[in-house]
Amino acid sequence: MDLRQQPNRLAAAWPWISTLARLGLAAVFLIAGGLKVTDLAASARAVNAYDLMSYDTAKVIGAVQPFLEIALGLLLLIGIATRLSAIIAAVLMVIFIAGIISAWARGLQIDCGCFSKGGELTGGRTAQYGLDILRDVGFLALAGILIWKPRSKFSLDSVLLGER
């Protein structure tokens, strides 16, 4: 392989890498939101389990969150304003990670509720905060790729802006 050609090849590969990151992140949000939206009361309890806010506030957050996740998932799926969508996704991930760290630091034994309605953890099941955080950091990295290189294939952005 000619060394001089490498940057060009990498430049050609980025839209594809970004496409994978975009679709991956879209799937993450669609699945996470879809699992919660069918039982908003459970979603409220999952938020409440973090013990960071009053139950009434947790109820609102618990209901708003799945709809936001699904909407963001759809926006990423169609690839509109990809950089902004990715920034919002990253902000959400940072909030989730902070929440898990705070639960961990306070020694709470809860399910993070990331991909489930979470909350209840009893009878010897232990929380796996380390793995939850690691996974969310991975998702944050996907968002990072998109913030850095938002141009991707099969996106509404590429149609509207015109492929260069």
Partner: peptide, 23 residues
């Protein structure tokens, strides 16, 4: 870019309002 950004924000706000409305 401006209009798609406005669109994204609008979609997210509406989604949030739907959740809030349900509660």
């Amino acid at each position: 870019t401006i209009w798609t950004s406005v669109g994204v924000v609008a979609v997210l706000v509406i989604a949030g309002l739907i959740g809030w409305g349900v509660v």
